[in-house]
C-alpha cells in the first residue's frame, strides 16, 4: 500500500531552509555576464553605414547624421527587443550591449532616448529619473 503525502519530508525540510525567492529590488544579482540589456553607442566609431537600422527587427534604432562624420543613434526602448542583432551587424563595433535592464518608464516619451558619444552607458540623462 502506498501512503498519501509522499512529499512530506521535503516540505518539512523547507521550513528550515531559506526561501528560494530572490528579494528582487534589494537583490539585483539576477543577471549573468553577457546579458543583453540596453545598448551603448560609441559615436567615434560609427561610420553611418546604417546596417543596424537595416537589420533591426523592430525598427527601434535610427542613426542620424549630426555633422561631418558625426552620428547619433535614436533608440526607442519600447520597440527594442534586446536581441542584439544590431551589435552583430555593426561593421565597426560602434554598438555594444550593457547589462542594464531596469528600463521601464511611467512616461512613454522617456522611452525614446538618444545615444550620444561615449563608450559608457549612453542616454543616462533621460533614464536617470527612475
Amino acid at each position: 500500500m502506498i501512503w498519501p503525502g509522499a512529499m512530506i519530508r521535503q516540505l518539512l525540510s523547507s521550513l528550515t531552509k531559506k526561501p528560494a525567492t530572490v528579494n528582487y529590488p534589494a537583490d539585483k544579482s539576477g543577471m549573468p555576464k553577457g546579458f543583453r540589456g540596453k545598448l551603448k553607442f560609441d559615436a567615434s566609431k560609427c561610420i553611418g553605414c546604417k546596417m543596424c537600422m537595416k537589420d533591426c527587427p523592430t525598427g527601434a534604432i535610427v542613426i542620424r547624421q549630426v555633422g561631418e562624420k558625426k552620428f547619433e543613434a535614436d533608440l526607442d526602448l519600447g520597440k527594442c527587443i534586446y536581441c542584439g542583432q544590431c551589435v552583430d551587424s555593426c561593421l565597426k563595433k560602434a554598438l555594444g550591449l550593457t547589462s542594464e535592464f531596469e528600463l521601464a518608464q511611467l512616461d512613454p516619451k522617456k522611452l525614446k532616448i538618444t545615444l550620444t558619444d561615449g563608450p559608457s552607458i549612453a542616454g543616462n540623462k533621460e533614464s536617470s529619473g527612475e
Binding site: L11, L12, S14, L15, K17, P19, A20, T21, N23
Partner: peptide, 9 residues
C-alpha cells in the same frame, strides 16, 4: 504554507 513551499509568504 508559503514556507512549506520554500517561498517567502
Amino acid at each position: 504554507g508559503a514556507r512549506l513551499q520554500n517561498r517567502v509568504g
